[in-house]
Protein backbone atom coordinates (compact mmCIF):
# COMPACT_ATOMS: atom_id res chain seq x y z
CA UNK A 1 0.00 0.00 0.00
CA UNK A 2 1.21 3.39 -0.90
CA UNK A 3 1.92 5.35 2.30
CA UNK A 4 -0.18 8.42 2.96
CA UNK A 5 2.84 10.74 2.94
CA UNK A 6 3.10 10.21 -0.82
CA UNK A 7 -0.45 11.47 -1.34
CA UNK A 8 0.15 14.40 0.94
CA UNK A 9 3.38 15.24 -0.86
CA UNK A 10 1.67 15.10 -4.26
CA UNK A 11 -1.10 17.27 -2.93
CA UNK A 12 1.37 19.80 -1.50
CA UNK A 13 3.31 19.97 -4.78
CA UNK A 14 0.12 20.36 -6.77
CA UNK A 15 -1.07 23.12 -4.41
CA UNK A 16 2.23 24.96 -4.59
CA UNK A 17 2.29 24.80 -8.38
CA UNK A 18 -1.28 26.07 -8.47
CA UNK A 19 -0.54 28.90 -6.03
CA UNK A 20 2.54 29.89 -8.03
CA UNK A 21 0.44 30.01 -11.18
CA UNK A 22 -2.25 32.13 -9.52
CA UNK A 23 0.33 34.61 -8.30
CA UNK A 24 2.42 34.94 -11.44
CA UNK A 25 0.39 34.17 -14.57
CA UNK A 26 -0.97 37.05 -16.57
CA UNK A 27 -3.56 35.21 -18.56
CA UNK A 28 -6.88 35.06 -16.75
CA UNK A 29 -7.68 31.64 -18.16
CA UNK A 30 -4.43 30.16 -16.86
CA UNK A 31 -5.11 31.70 -13.44
CA UNK A 32 -8.51 30.03 -13.44
CA UNK A 33 -6.92 26.70 -14.33
CA UNK A 34 -4.38 27.11 -11.54
CA UNK A 35 -7.21 27.74 -9.06
CA UNK A 36 -8.76 24.42 -10.22
CA UNK A 37 -5.40 22.76 -9.61
CA UNK A 38 -5.29 24.06 -6.00
CA UNK A 39 -8.84 22.84 -5.51
CA UNK A 40 -7.91 19.38 -6.75
CA UNK A 41 -4.87 19.32 -4.45
CA UNK A 42 -7.35 19.67 -1.60
CA UNK A 43 -9.52 16.95 -3.11
CA UNK A 44 -6.56 14.57 -3.20
CA UNK A 45 -6.06 15.21 0.52
CA UNK A 46 -9.70 14.38 1.17
CA UNK A 47 -9.54 11.13 -0.80
CA UNK A 48 -6.24 10.11 0.79
CA UNK A 49 -7.54 10.61 4.32
CA UNK A 50 -10.85 8.93 3.45
CA UNK A 51 -8.97 5.83 2.36
CA UNK A 52 -6.56 6.08 5.30
CA UNK A 53 -9.34 6.28 7.91
CA UNK A 54 -11.81 4.06 5.99
CA UNK A 55 -14.41 6.80 6.05
CA UNK A 56 -16.54 7.48 2.95
CA UNK A 57 -17.56 10.94 4.17
CA UNK A 58 -14.34 12.25 2.57
CA UNK A 59 -15.29 10.81 -0.81
CA UNK A 60 -18.78 12.29 -0.53
CA UNK A 61 -17.25 15.65 0.22
CA UNK A 62 -14.99 15.45 -2.82
CA UNK A 63 -17.91 14.71 -5.16
CA UNK A 64 -19.69 17.69 -3.61
CA UNK A 65 -16.59 19.90 -4.10
CA UNK A 66 -16.16 18.80 -7.73
CA UNK A 67 -19.74 19.65 -8.59
CA UNK A 68 -19.42 23.07 -6.93
CA UNK A 69 -16.11 23.59 -8.76
CA UNK A 70 -17.81 22.80 -12.05
CA UNK A 71 -20.43 25.50 -11.40
CA UNK A 72 -17.72 27.89 -10.28
CA UNK A 73 -15.71 27.37 -13.44
CA UNK A 74 -18.78 28.05 -15.52
CA UNK A 75 -19.22 31.41 -13.72
CA UNK A 76 -15.50 32.18 -13.91
CA UNK A 77 -15.32 31.52 -17.63
CA UNK A 78 -18.46 33.56 -18.24
CA UNK A 79 -16.82 36.51 -16.47
CA UNK A 80 -13.63 36.04 -18.46
CA UNK A 81 -15.59 35.90 -21.70
CA UNK A 82 -17.37 39.11 -20.91
CA UNK A 83 -14.08 40.72 -19.94
CA UNK A 84 -12.64 39.65 -23.24
CA UNK A 85 -15.60 41.09 -25.07
CA UNK A 86 -15.37 44.48 -23.39
CA UNK A 87 -11.62 44.95 -23.11
CA UNK A 88 -10.36 42.69 -25.91
CA UNK A 89 -7.87 40.92 -23.69
CA UNK A 90 -7.63 38.37 -20.92
CA UNK A 91 -4.37 39.83 -19.67
CA UNK A 92 -4.98 40.65 -16.02
CA UNK A 93 -2.51 43.56 -16.02
CA UNK A 94 -4.44 45.27 -18.77
CA UNK A 95 -7.69 45.07 -16.87
CA UNK A 96 -7.13 47.96 -14.51
CA UNK A 97 -10.06 50.36 -14.88
CA UNK A 98 -10.78 50.28 -11.12
CA UNK A 99 -7.14 50.87 -10.23
CA UNK A 100 -5.93 54.21 -8.84
Amino acid sequence: MIPIEMFLGLSAVLFAVGAYGVLTKKNGLVVLMCIEMMLNAANINFIAFAAFFNDVAGQVFVIMAISVAAAEVAVGIAILLNLYKTSGTTDLEEINILRW
Binding site: V22, L23, R99
Partner: peptide, 17 residues
Protein backbone atom coordinates in the same frame (compact mmCIF):
# COMPACT_ATOMS: atom_id res chain seq x y z
CA UNK B 1 1.37 54.43 1.03
CA UNK B 2 -1.25 54.17 -1.67
CA UNK B 3 1.32 52.56 -3.96
CA UNK B 4 0.78 49.40 -1.89
CA UNK B 5 -2.72 49.22 -3.25
CA UNK B 6 -1.76 48.17 -6.75
CA UNK B 7 -5.24 47.14 -7.77
CA UNK B 8 -3.93 43.76 -8.96
CA UNK B 9 -5.64 40.81 -7.36
CA UNK B 10 -2.46 38.83 -7.72
CA UNK B 11 -0.51 41.23 -5.56
CA UNK B 12 -3.09 40.94 -2.84
CA UNK B 13 -3.09 37.19 -3.17
CA UNK B 14 0.69 37.23 -2.88
CA UNK B 15 0.35 39.17 0.35
CA UNK B 16 -2.14 36.66 1.65
CA UNK B 17 0.12 33.74 0.77
Amino acid sequence: LRRIQTGFLQTYAAFVV
